[in-house]
Amino acid sequence: MSAAVPNLLTAARLVAVPIVMWLLIADAGADGPLRWWALVLFALAAATDYLDGALARRWGVVSVFGKLADPIADKALILGALGCLAYVDSLPWWPLIVLVVREVGVTLGRLAVAADTVIAASTGGKVKTVLQLAALTLLMWPAGPAWFATVGWWILIAAVAVAVVTGVDYARRIAAAARSTRPTRPVSQKDADAGA
C-alpha cells in the first residue's frame, strides 16, 4: 500500500487542478469565499508536490510514473491557476505564454525519450516550481495588501527567467539522451573492407 501513496498524491494533485480553476473563474475576481477555497485547495495541492516526492524517496518506491507524472501535475496546477488569474485579474498574458511554450516543449521532449531514458526534474526546475507556487499564492490571496500583488508579480518574473534558463538545460539533456539512444548504422562488409 505504501508504494502506491506517492502516486495517489500525484493523482490527487491532478484532480485538484480543474477544481481550483473552476473556483477562480466562478469567483470572477470578487475575492469572495470561492477564491478562499481556491487558495486553500491550491495550497494543499502544492503541499502534495513536496510530500509525494519525500515519501517516495523515504520508502524507496520512486517509480517511472512518479518521475513523469509528478512534474506534469505541477505544470497543470501552476499553468491552470496562472491562466485563470490572467483571465479574472487581468494579469499580463506573456508570462503564461512563455511558461506554456517552455513546459510543453520540455514535457514533449521528456516523453519522446521516456522509453529509454527518464529525464528527472533538475534542481533549477524545482527552484522554478517553488517560485511559481510562492508567486501564485500571493497573487491569488483574496483582498490581500497591495504589496502581495507587487511581490507576487516580481517573484513570477523571476520564475519565468529561471524557467527559460532551465528550459535550455532540459533541451540540452533531452538532445543528449536522444543521441545516446539513436541506433547506429550497421557496418557493411564493403565499409569494413574499405576501412581495413
Rank of each mutant, 00 (worst) to 15 (best):
A3Q: 11
A4M: 14
N7F: 08
A11F: 13
I19K: 05
W22S: 14
L23D: 01
A26M: 08
P33G: 06
L34A: 10
L41I: 09
L44V: 12
A47L: 11
A47P: 04
A47K: 09
Y50A: 15
Y50Q: 10
L55Y: 13
S63M: 05
G66P: 00
G66K: 02
I72F: 08
A73N: 03
K75W: 02
I78V: 14
A81Y: 02
A81T: 15
L85F: 03
Y87R: 07
L91C: 08
L91F: 13
V98N: 04
V101T: 05
V101P: 01
V104R: 06
V106H: 02
T107P: 07
A112V: 04
A112C: 06
V118L: 01
A120Y: 03
A120P: 06
A120H: 07
T123L: 14
G125I: 01
V127S: 06
V127W: 08
V130M: 09
V130W: 08
T137A: 14
P142T: 13
A146F: 09
W147G: 07
W147F: 14
I157V: 15
A159Q: 09
D169N: 12
Y170S: 07
I174M: 06
A175F: 07
A177G: 03
A178N: 06
S180Q: 11
S180F: 04
R185F: 08
R185W: 08
D191I: 13
D193V: 14
G195C: 12
